[in-house]
Every structure is written in structure tokens, then in C-alpha cells.
Amino acid sequence: MEDELLQILESNPDICPEDLSKILNKDKKEIENKLKELESKGIIKKKYIINWEKIGIDRVYALIKVKVSPERGRGYDKVAERIARFNEVRAVYLISGEYDLEIIVEGKSLKEIASFVSNKLATLDGVKSTVTHFILKKYKENGEIFFEEEKDYRLKISL
């Protein structure tokens, strides 16, 4: 049931346990317990994706590539984990290619991000160099499209 449940949750994040019980033909209590279990195991996590731009609140995002020196025994983990702990850091990835880490940073202004990079990130032990790309516009994030949705062109009745 787990696979099926997860698939349904992925495309219907706000579905209630009662409806899930109908779909999976299981007791509501059983579904609720399963959801709790999945949550506590960190398999599912609920989160809203907010398009702040739409209500006129500006947030600034930057995609930063970082070169770091790996550490004996722990590789890239130590420095990556240190970076990940900053609140303003939204995502951290170890990547292949010229750079080692790619991170996404959020801030209120260009200045805020610039200061984070120069004061915190670049000065970390193990960080050799950074290159910062400010994000100018978001078109799609986490599979969600941020521009105008397509309308339903179907006839109301067709046989």
C-alpha cells in the first residue's frame, strides 16, 4: 500500500485521510497511522510553495557555485553540512563538474545576499572560491509552473 499511497499524496498533497481510506479501501485509522509513520520517518514532508512575486513581495534568490577542499575521512560532507545549517540557505547540492557544491540562497535584497556570501560563505574554512548568480525570474520550481496555467479546452460533454 505504501507505494500507492505515496503516489497519490504526491499528486494530491492536500487529500484527507478519509478520502485516502476510500481510495485504498483501508480503515481511516490505519491510514492516519501510516501517514504519521511516514512523516516521522521523514519519508513525507508537507510544505507550501509560495509565489511571493504574485503578491508583490520581493525575495531575492541566488544560485551559488562553491569550490571547496574536501576533508580527509569526511569528504565534502562537513563543509556542506555547515553551509546547509544557515537559515538563508534553501538548498545545497554536491555536484559534478568544475565546482563542488551548488547552493540556493534566499534574502530580502541583493545586499543581504552579498553580505551573506562575503561574510559567511566565502570565509568558511574549506571554501576556496564562489560564483554567485542572482535569480532573475522563476518559471518553474519543484515541478510547479509559475506562469499562466493552461485552460481546459474540453467540451463539457463528449461521448
Binding site: 500507492e4 503516489q7 497519490i8 499528486s11 476510500k22
Partner: peptide, 14 residues
């Protein structure tokens, strides 16, 4: 497919 199947089960039950 998983989406249609979920809907089928739901509508059938309701």
C-alpha cells in the same frame, strides 16, 4: 495510471 486508479477507487466507493 496511478492517478486514474485512485480516482476510480474513490468514485466507485462514494
Amino acid at each position: 495510471l496511478p492517478e486514474y486508479k485512485a480516482r476510480r477507487n474513490y468514485v466507485y466507493k462514494r
